[in-house]
């Protein structure tokens, strides 16, 4: 019987250890001792709620960091540390603090849920630049000077994809698989709906929210419900949409994606994606930080700035008139004649 606690303890320890491995700590550093970069190596850390290959929110940031790293000259010039799968906010907060303590130049808290804790941490490390999103508040009102905020105008691409959906739907029924009615998921859905209604007044848009950013099977059930209700075009937001994309593929519906290019998830199913390209934002934050400005600026990704891109999938044929309408919508949003939100 004495073995009881030892056994339980041992298993728990192994479990916790491996769970910790699943949300990896900093990626191996560049071989600093041997490489000897001429300029000082910039160190960037990011804490994200899901995996870096989630095909959505986290991947958009990860891909952008890798792109910036490549443009700066690889690992010798820029070190990237990633903590992914940080569903638990307290763990994420601990990781953010750790990175700041380790002297990272820029620490990115990639999730709205991490924001509240950032005000406290940022005050303790005035020489570290922090960033969080999707958000617009840099906490300047609270006296914080070293936090950047970034926010995608998800409604813009949402509107454009809504126009495409309205033009391409044969049944006139379109299904929207929302996760939680908040943040860029909500603005995307609202923009998408307006895009559809402005293009096809009699179209029917059904919207569901699952109440979770991560519940893949419920998202699949939502997509299935939409197809049962007659939808031939589906869209949705968050990392849980992989479930819905699988259903769309199965039911031969067309999927429009957002956050990252989702074509690779189902190459015959994804018509187009709104892609968040954070490279410009990351570069500007690093520039400002190097010049001594550690925060205080809120960035917006937009179609105009090039931070939002509509990426088509060549394997799904998009009619010429639909593409023309989408291009007109992009132009209208950029010049301000179209308001993507109701």
């Amino acid at each position: 019987m004495k073995l009881n606690r030892i056994g339980a303890g041992a298993l728990l320890a192994v479990g916790l250890l491996l769970a910790a491995c699943g949300t990896p700590t900093p990626a191996p550093a560049a071989p600093a001792a041997t490489a000897k970069p001429a300029a000082k190596q910039v160190k960037v850390a990011v804490v994200m709620p899901s995996a870096s290959n989630d095909g959505a929110f986290s991947q958009s940031m990860y891909d952008a960091l890798k792109a910036v790293q490549a443009s700066m000259g690889g690992e010798a010039a820029m070190k990237i540390a990633v903590s992914e799968g940080m569903v638990q906010v307290p763990n994420a907060v601990a990781a953010i603090r750790d990175y700041a303590q380790q002297g990272y130049d820029l620490v990115i808290a990639h999730g709205t849920q991490y924001g509240n804790s950032l005000t406290e941490i940022a005050k303790d490390f005035p020489n570290t630049a922090f960033a969080w999103g999707t958000a617009t508040d840099t906490f300047a009102a609270a006296g914080v000077k070293n936090v950047f905020a970034y926010n995608p105008r998800a409604q813009e691409g949402g509107y454009v994809l809504g126009v495409l959906a309205a033009k391409m739907s044969k049944s006139g029924v379109i299904g929207v698989c929302g996760p939680v009615e908040a943040g860029d998921a909500k603005t995307y859905v609202d923009g998408f709906k307006k895009g559809v209604m402005d293009t096809k007044k009699d179209a029917k848009i059904n919207v569901t929210y699952t109440g979770s950013f991560s519940d893949v099977s419920l998202m699949a059930a939502a997509a299935e419900t939409h197809t049962k209700a007659g939808a031939d075009i589906l869209t949705g937001s968050s990392q849980s949409v992989v479930g819905a994309i699988g259903v769309a593929k199965d039911k031969k519906a067309i999927w429009f994606g957002t956050q990252a290019n989702q074509t690779s998830l189902a190459p015959d199913t994804v018509g187009a994606s709104q892609v968040y390209d954070w490279t410009g934002v990351i570069k500007e934050m690093l520039d400002l930080s190097a010049k001594g400005t550690k925060g205080g600026k809120a960035f917006e990704l937009s179609l105009q700035s090039g931070g939002l891109k509509i990426v088509y999938n060549d394997k799904v044929s998009i009619p010429a008139d639909a593409k023309a309408a989408a291009d007109a919508a992009i132009k209208g949003i950029i010049d301000g004649t179209i308001k993507p939100l109701p």
Partner: peptide, 10 residues
Amino acid sequence: INLFQENMTS
């Protein structure tokens, strides 16, 4: 679902 995603059972 025909895909895998981290913590997909939630």
